[in-house]
Design a protein around this nucleic acid. Structure first.
Lengths: 197, 197
DNA sequence: TGGATTAACATGCAGCCTGTATCTTTTCTG
DNA sequence: CAGAAAAGATACAGGCTGCATGTTAATCCA
């Protein structure tokens, strides 16, 4: 039996990055970005700080990588639940439910909605959302509204504001607010937004 | 001329706290909470770290004090612009405009909407908002909607979600989005929410 | 196949920051 | 006016980040 199993470099990198991301994710969720130290992270991952700084530029870059994984996971769950096959309006409602379900995974609100914007800045954080979950919403709105909006109103502006309502809905549910009330309010917001002229 | 002008203790405390809050506010806005050090703050305020830790428990407590001042200023501007004398619906629209105007003061979005929730936590940060600007919104909504909502929907849930839309509207405008489009979308959200049954 | 090269990882260090403990100075109180 | 208390300054311990330097393992190439 070999003392150190020979592995390809790709395997080594994948294993290390994976352990690092998993450990960082758990700690960022548990204690927040600011109160999580890199010594803690590497200890939980079973490596050293040298490896961390070999794979990531700094602590922020590691955090960003964790967030990208998380945002992609949320977007995947939404697209799986809200295929564009149904009517635009029903797809919006289904996507809404799927988003709130996805965000109920422990820690996601903290990662994506609290620490993310503060650590990465509003621009980068919103861009991340826009590239994933937000895109589905904007497309759904555009399909449901059609050309029935006139300047200065835009689909993008409506999508931006509704997206914020989604986010706070997830936060409120996470904070213990009545999920039924929040979800009902969310549905009302969407239906009223897309109905009529 | 006396070397040290004799001052009452109250004056000393007020002057020091004021200088501290002003210096901290400017730096928190300019560089963010995490990248602002207490040595920087006290240097800008013309005092020492000893005085800071005499007046505040820690850096977070100083930040919280800055945010309380800021939240109160925003709430004052809103109540000045949206007296409850008009119709509930017009008061809501006026309050909406006043909020976005108030939040356009440089740095407020960063303080109240980005660093605040991350540093103080979602609970404390939302409570701060709820105690000031958010209260006006909830009361306005209740007046405009009257008893026309049925379970599981609640006025509080609607206020929570609309409040989030307001916040992101301020952020979007701050980030360079077209203010006319954002404001139009905001007005539409409110009017659609309060109209009809 | 085996030595050079590069990637992966580990260790050690410099500078900075936070919070506290201690000390000095100014104001208040009886 | 003397003692107490508040305001403010100084000093220190522990910890953290990022980098520079060293070591080991995989890859490349002749």
């Amino acid at each position: 039996m070999q003392r150190t199993m020979p592995r390809t470099n790709r395997e080594r990198t994948e294993a290390t990055r994976g352990a690092l991301l998993a450990a960082a994710r758990a700690l960022f969720i548990d204690k927040g970005y600011a109160d999580t130290s890199t010594p803690e992270i590497v200890a939980a991952a079973g490596i050293t700080r040298g490896a961390l700084y070999h794979h990531f530029d700094d602590k922020r870059a590691l955090f960003r990588a964790v967030l990208e994984e998380e945002a992609r996971a949320v977007a995947d769950e939404i697209e799986r639940a809200a295929p564009a096959t149904r009517s635009p309006r029903k797809a919006l409602i289904a996507g809404s439910e799927a988003y709130l379900d996805a965000m109920s995974v422990a820690g996601r609100t903290r990662l994506l909605l609290l620490d993310g914007p503060a650590v990465l800045g509003a621009g980068e954080s919103l861009a991340l959302d826009q590239a994933h979950a937000g895109r589905t919403l904007r497309e759904g709105l555009a399909a449901a509204l059609g050309p029935r909006i006139a300047p200065p109103l835009t689909v993008d502006a409506l999508a931006t504001l509704l997206s914020a309502a989604f986010d706070r809905a997830a936060l409120a549910i996470d904070a213990g607010d009545d999920p039924a009330a929040i979800r009902a309010a969310m549905v009302r917001l969407i239906e009223r937004t897309v109905s009529g002229g």
